[in-house]
Design a protein around this nucleic acid. Sequence first.
DNA 1: CTGTTAGCGCCTTCAT
DNA 2: ATGAAGGCGCTAACAG
Lengths: 361, 361
Amino acid sequence: MAGIKDIAEKANVSIGTVDRVIHRRGRVAKETIERVQRAMEELNYRPDIHASNLSSGRRYRIAALIPELTQDSGFWGESAEGIRSAVSELEQHRVDIEIYNYDEWNLASFGGSLDRALDDGADGLLIAPSTLTDRKTLFERIPGDVPYVICDSYIPGTNCITYVGEDSYQAGRTAGRLMADMVANGPVVALRSLPGTEHIGRRVQGFVDVISERNQVRPLSIDFDSTMTDPQVDAFVGRLFFENPAIHGLFLSNSQINRIAPAVLRHFKGERPRMVGFDLVPANRDLLANGSIDYLIGQRPEEQAYLGIQILYRHIAMHRRFPPEIIVPIDIICAENLGNYSTRLAVEEYAMTNPGDSATG
Amino acid sequence: MAGIKDIAEKANVSIGTVDRVIHRRGRVAKETIERVQRAMEELNYRPDIHASNLSSGRRYRIAALIPELTQDSGFWGESAEGIRSAVSELEQHRVDIEIYNYDEWNLASFGGSLDRALDDGADGLLIAPSTLTDRKTLFERIPGDVPYVICDSYIPGTNCITYVGEDSYQAGRTAGRLMADMVANGPVVALRSLPGTEHIGRRVQGFVDVISERNQVRPLSIDFDSTMTDPQVDAFVGRLFFENPAIHGLFLSNSQINRIAPAVLRHFKGERPRMVGFDLVPANRDLLANGSIDYLIGQRPEEQAYLGIQILYRHIAMHRRFPPEIIVPIDIICAENLGNYSTRLAVEEYAMTNPGDSATG
DNA sequence: CTGTTAGCGCCTTCAT
DNA sequence: ATGAAGGCGCTAACAG
């Protein structure tokens, strides 16, 4: 494995110069830079991360900007799990990670968290923009030398180093497929929460498309206001099934199926309509386990957060480049495969005890 | 962060002695050992993996014993992908990984690969025992100081450091659930390949149980001999549907659905029976994509292999301990969510170019 | 602009 | 049984 010394030799310079080229620390003649870079390529140089980490005692700070963990039925708690996974693996690599929560309905709150993160000297940001609409302006506050990764929902036109998220349309199609298989011909209804969000709109579109392709009856598409109180939801559901008594399937386009399912169950004595929702949040997990709903679509929020942070670290510390977007798989979860889903992503999280314990060595 | 030097100071010894205690390299007075260990605990010592790796230039060798990549419709190629993922991440950590394939129907072939791996000085083994039945005796050949992880199918009574695999029964139940949702009441058939394998038996059991719980008609359970030639499979399918014309669903308990589906499609002009199989091997992926079959159950073979190797490395190099078994999630895959499944597991695999490329200083 | 040098924390050989 | 010392590959401060 070629090292910095070999490069220095091949390029007829000292290791100090090579180091300056690698880290673009300036003060090197243009011609020398090229010579060194050529040597690096020819020898296929890869820095020794151990030597590098050991030598530069510096620590990296990564800030994660996500909504309050309680919002969206606890969906953001899943993201937090992924961040914890990243912590367990990166703490050995001199990386400090901190979560800055914000109120997803409050633009100023986002701004405040962003400012705090930057004040704390974050070297990189993981940002889940969630519902904030004109959040794009906020991105302009981020200094050019602070890289960031966007996860969960996409915002066009930023210069994030990567977007990590789901393919919303395919996620909606997947929900539709399951519904179509359960309800061969009966009419179904798609409840659209957060009608404003593009992200959610694409899910509903995917769902509607598949049902239309596979079913005789076009699905109903109705807006669902998630700020309703429980009694209001109850009334909403009562009206829905009174006006459309034939409905055999119900789909909700975000994590709030746990708001609706209880009302639906109260409404039906005998066979209930089939239900498909999104996200493996605790309340939904329970509904799945006891058979109150049928399927959930998962978008791996933990994995998104974990990947985002790992990418930031590698970008910052190892100058790696990444593709502009990474699409994570869409999970289908039912009572039968629910049990094996875990939030452990990092191998380190499986480790149990202190060093020096085994008989080896 | 306390280092070896601090411990030496606190225990009134030299760093050399501390090192000997840490690595159990002997030649230290009992009383000294205790004094050092106490100091380690009090200071909550964690070795700096970077310094450690840098200093001890030693490399670790991990051998992966898996069947020929072409066997089981290419299933083991998926495992190989996971191994490649591990390579991409561990090559920076001075780990050499080599795959030793063997013929899954040939016990001697397994033994030969094992011997070669050991001869090559493997420090740890990842073993996928597959179909071999009295493989347990082979495990006795492994020297006590060579740790190993078993993946894919479990063998009781070995002293592997961890088993990484699926919950076969739940996997079967998941398949059954999907089938029951598609075929509300019609009779369905479960084809049992490799009838001898416990692993496969549990899948069939899970499938049968769910269908029995949800359907009126108990599923037929029939053995399928995967060594049949294509014409034989054709005849087998013809006979099956001639004798049971009402069958509306067909399940196969391993990756070979691609052997059967074409014959079934030839047999049916109009609506075909619903089909569920296992494993996202290339041929099955195609069947799913073009609508020839309905669902596949995935057991994440890449993740199993990746995890197994990461665990071995951490066990060998960092003396970490792991739980005796790790059960991976069961994936449900259909045409709609097929596209986003990828075999990239290591963050490193997403990285695109050489170091020193970004604008960051 | 470029070369030199002193560590980073740990491992390992060599003396004692 | 224990201590001393050199070195792993890279970083960064300093000297030219």
